[in-house]
Computed example of a mutant assay.
Amino acid sequence: MKTYDYLIVGAGLFGAVFAHEAKKAGKKVLVIDKRDHIGGNIYTREVEGIQVHQYGAHIFHTSDREVWDYMQQFAEFNRYTNSPVARYQDEVYNLPFNMNTFSRMWGIHTPAQAKEIIENQIAEAGIREPQNLEEQAISLVGKDIYEKLVKGYTEKQWGRRATELPSFIIKRLPVRFVYDNNYFNDKYQGIPVGGYTRIIEKMLDGVQVRLNTDFFTQREELMKEAENLLFTGMIDAYYDYCYGELEYRSLRFETEVLDMENYQGNAVVNYTEYEIPYTRIIEHKHFEYGCQGGYGGSGSGVSEKTVITREYPASWSRGKEPYYPMNDEKNNALYEKYRTLAKKEEHVIFGGRLGMYQYFDMHQVVRAALKAAQENLTNVGVQ
């Protein structure tokens, strides 16, 4: 006798969406997570009245109306628009690359002027067949933008010099000849009021959840409890690295509470110099309207403190948290070997960034989880 229809490993967004749909379909579900909280990497917690994104900035954005409507049942989203800025030495630039960026960099004012400078720099570089990331980036945006806003940030993020990175990593760089700082092109964008954890709580309402539970240390016992498995961890770990390790990039976060109302004036500031070890500083209160600071002063209801997080890219090794799959040719070929094994499984589903070895934005995670639910939540019952 099996107690559950599904054992779901991972209480992040993919696992929570699938668990919610499974419960609606009348299935018995057990969700486990090795961490002491639900939500995976979108987990938020309140500090000094501010919703802190524990594992880096997460802005929900999509042009998929069905996914947007789906998420609305779990939270009200504010009207946050992602408009990061970049610091290079003592200079500050708007992102993505747009007319505000070009005006600040070159002292020009029209799209024609900006296009001429970029086209001239590309022509001067004379790169016909880019052999590495550096050459690819220069051939797309010219030398000035590359050296100030791309080079250092990219090298920190990947942990390798740009001349050592393959050109295909940067297939395109967004260049906009308008004065618009909206980072995303998507039609819908925002952050849930009250944080992402509340969304996951609602998705998992009525579902059995066990935290501080490591699948690998209790694998045999857990598998006896459920007829089917949804696994959102590392697919190579599931198969005990039988073909070798897939590569990932990790992150390290330093979060602190500051005794001031407003530290940097923006939610996300990227630091593009290679010599500065972190890639960005997040000031969490700026994600939420009405508590950003710098508007009303004392008595305005704005927290007089602020919370910032410095984000450091890090190499990955076993035991560290894998955040980004290294989707180069070598690793994608290795993943295909594991995917071939996965296709042979009759009662195991792999999902999420780690289970599918693919970089997903949140809306893509939701869509993939809904697809998995639609494909698997039929004719499944407790034996």
Results as ranks from 00 to 15, higher is better:
Val141Trp: 06
Val141Asn: 11
Val141Thr: 02
Val141Tyr: 08
Lys143Tyr: 11
Lys143Asp: 05
Ile145Ser: 07
Ile145Glu: 02
Tyr146Ser: 03
Tyr146Cys: 08
Tyr146His: 06
Tyr146Phe: 15
Tyr146Leu: 04
Lys148Arg: 15
Leu149Asn: 09
Val150Phe: 15
Lys151Cys: 09
Gly152Trp: 06
Gly152Lys: 11
Tyr153Gln: 08
Tyr153Gly: 04
Tyr153Phe: 13
Tyr153Cys: 06
Thr154Arg: 03
Glu155Met: 11
Glu155Ile: 06
Lys156Val: 10
Lys156Arg: 12
Gln157Met: 07
Gln157Leu: 09
Gln157Ala: 08
Gln157Asp: 06
Trp158Ser: 04
Gly159Phe: 05
Gly159Trp: 06
Gly159His: 01
Arg160Val: 08
Arg160Ala: 12
Arg160Trp: 07
Arg161Cys: 02
Arg161His: 13
Ala162Met: 00
Ala162Ile: 03
Ala162Trp: 13
Thr163Arg: 04
Glu164Lys: 01
Glu164Leu: 05
Leu165Met: 14
Leu165Ile: 11
Leu165Arg: 12
Leu165Gly: 11
Leu165Phe: 01
Pro166Thr: 03
Ser167Ile: 03
Ser167Met: 08
Phe168Cys: 11
Ile170Arg: 04
Ile170Gln: 02
Lys171Thr: 14
Lys171Val: 07
Arg172Gly: 06
Leu173Ser: 05
Leu173Cys: 09
Pro174Asn: 13
Val175Ile: 14
Val175Gly: 05
Arg176Lys: 15
Phe177Gly: 10
Phe177Arg: 08
Val178Trp: 03
Val178Tyr: 10
Val178Glu: 15
Val178Ala: 15
Asn181Leu: 05
Asn182Cys: 10
Tyr183Thr: 14
Tyr183Met: 13
Phe184Asn: 14
Phe184Gly: 00
Asn185Lys: 11
Asn185Met: 12
Asp186Met: 04
Lys187Thr: 14
Lys187Asp: 05
Tyr188Cys: 04
Tyr188Phe: 10
Gln189Lys: 13
Gln189Glu: 15
Gln189Ala: 12
Gln189Ile: 14
Gly190His: 09
Gly190Lys: 14
Gly190Leu: 08
Ile191Glu: 03
Ile191Met: 15
Pro192Cys: 04
Val193His: 01
Gly194Asn: 04
Gly194Arg: 05
Gly194Ala: 09
Gly194Ser: 07
Gly195Tyr: 01
Tyr196Phe: 14
Thr197Glu: 07
Thr197Leu: 07
Arg198Ile: 05
Arg198Glu: 00
Arg198Thr: 02
Arg198Trp: 00
Arg198His: 01
Ile199Gly: 00
Ile199Ser: 00
Ile199Met: 01
Ile199Arg: 01
Ile200Lys: 06
Ile200Leu: 10
Ile200Asp: 02
Glu201Tyr: 09
Lys202His: 00
Lys202Glu: 01
Met203Asn: 08
Met203Ser: 06
Leu204Gln: 10
Leu204Gly: 10
Asp205Leu: 06
Val207His: 08
Gln208Phe: 07
Gln208Ser: 09
Gln208Trp: 00
Val209Gly: 03
Val209Met: 00
Arg210Phe: 05
Arg210Thr: 06
Arg210Met: 07
Arg210Lys: 15
Asn212Met: 04
Asn212Phe: 02
Thr213Asp: 04
Thr213Arg: 11
Asp214Phe: 03
Phe215Trp: 08
Phe215Leu: 09
Phe215Lys: 07
Phe215Arg: 08
Phe215Ser: 12
Thr217Met: 00
Thr217Asn: 00
Thr217Cys: 06
Thr217Asp: 02
Gln218Met: 03
Gln218Thr: 07
Gln218Asp: 11
